[in-house]
Design a protein around this nucleic acid. Structure first.
Lengths: 236, 236
DNA sequence: AATTGTATTATGTATGACATTATAAAGGTA
DNA sequence: TACCTTTATAATGTCATACATAATACAATT
């Protein structure tokens, strides 16, 4: 029997640990809708007895579920199913010193795509007070010097406000999750090339488009505003 | 002293558990760059002795780090720092039966924004063979019937290919992560309204724009293509 | 009725033992 | 020497038991 035919005929042995099995077991209960949000799951000792494994194993499985936000545990109360806070979970692993360069760049790209693509949501959900706030932010914009292309805090304030206007909490959390990366990217010199500031749409320009334009115009304006970032990403 | 002034003057006591502290401790080592990818971290027993807590506590902290992808552990070898696979981590918690309606809608919105905003990356990185593949996918497109507005598998194939063309692995993982949601959204009747198919840009139209157009045109085409989704989101 | 004390219960932590397995070392054969 | 096999070893994985801690419910007290 050749190796190939062997591989086709033999069935993979299960290398998963007990914890893996218990975890899968519990997750399956969720998939099959035996359990839904708010439901309590059995106590550790009950699970231990029911499933025939030690409490140690049960605990590790529960810890895993807790880390990914599927359950919450409290002393004396036990654990209940929860609706996970998707992007907040990621924040912890969003450590720029740990993520490799490719991932950092890709996350940055995702940000660019999102900010261009969110135009429709901005127009759909913006309120007059938002315009006022945007104007206020723009007015307090620090002067652009040669050394410092832009002030990061101000950037975050402005773009953060845009995320907020979308009314999409998760989108905003996504931005928040990326903040440490921005900070890093701008401090690390990764993208620190002198940039052609001229002819790019300014923050003020963006606000004007939001006030008097259309989603389509906003996408183009935003694309132009972000041009320097695109340039640096694409030039290599 | 009033309650208000009391609250202002008293400092919050630390309610974090031992595991919380150990975890924070280890993460801090990463932040301060004492540890970087590939580095091994001390054995459980060493940590236990060094930090003066039981192995149980150490193990739970390590489990947490493992779940969020910061370390990998192997028998006999111990644990090493790894660069987390950001979006894949989320896949587990991306359970449509657990996520609440708002989150589901918001994730769907993020998808729409991304697909519109990714135009530049598609143009920047597309290769001739990609066009061929897109054409092939479009040609095998099933006939649109009244009952079934579109074939989900085909949708995934086409849009998945677009994600792939962006050359952004994480963006692709993001799409993959959302698949169970699409499936759910389309099966659950959540968005199942009859839709005006006429005058919308088809998949074929998208490919034409990719071949002969520009990022700007692609954004508009994609926005139009996704119009039915936007309609259903915005109408309520 | 509202507050304070008390018992209970489930999770959190500690300890010690053994199981499992991937690596490294030792040994044997060509 | 080089390669394969066996054996030892060191780390994580699992088990069992005990106790600590904290949140709840309920009783007691004012």
């Amino acid at each position: 029997m050749t190796l190939t035919t062997f591989r086709e005929n033999v069935e993979l042995i299960d290398t998963s640990s007990l914890v893996d099995k218990v975890e899968a077991n519990l997750v399956k209960l969720l998939q099959e809708r035996k359990l839904k949000v708010g439901d309590a799951i059995p106590k550790e000792l009950e699970l231990s007895e029911t499933l025939g494994v030690s409490r140690t194993v049960i605990r590790e499985a529960l810890i895993r579920l807790r880390v990914i936000g599927l359950i919450e545990t409290k002393k004396k109360k036990g654990a209940v199913i929860t609706s996970p806070d998707v992007f907040s979970i990621l924040s912890k692993s969003m450590n720029p010193y740990i993520l490799d360069q490719d991932t950092l760049r890709e996350m940055f790209e995702i940000r660019l795509a999102l900010e261009i693509g969110m135009a429709d949501f901005i127009f759909q959900r913006i309120r007059p007070s938002d315009i006022v706030e945007l104007r206020r932010i723009v007015e307090s914009e620090p002067i652009v010097t040669e050394d410092q292309i832009f002030n990061i805090e101000h950037e975050i304030a402005f773009h953060g406000k845009l995320y907020e206007i979308t009314g999409n909490e998760n989108m905003k959390k996504f931005q928040k999750m990326l903040l440490p990366i921005f900070d890093y990217v701008h401090n690390s010199g990764l993208l620190k090339k002198t940039v052609n500031v001229k002819k790019f749409v300014s923050h003020k320009g963006i606000v004007d488009v939001i006030e008097n334009g259309s989603p389509e115009l906003l996408r183009n304006a935003m694309r132009n505003h972000l041009e320097s970032h695109f340039e640096r990403i694409f030039e290599k």
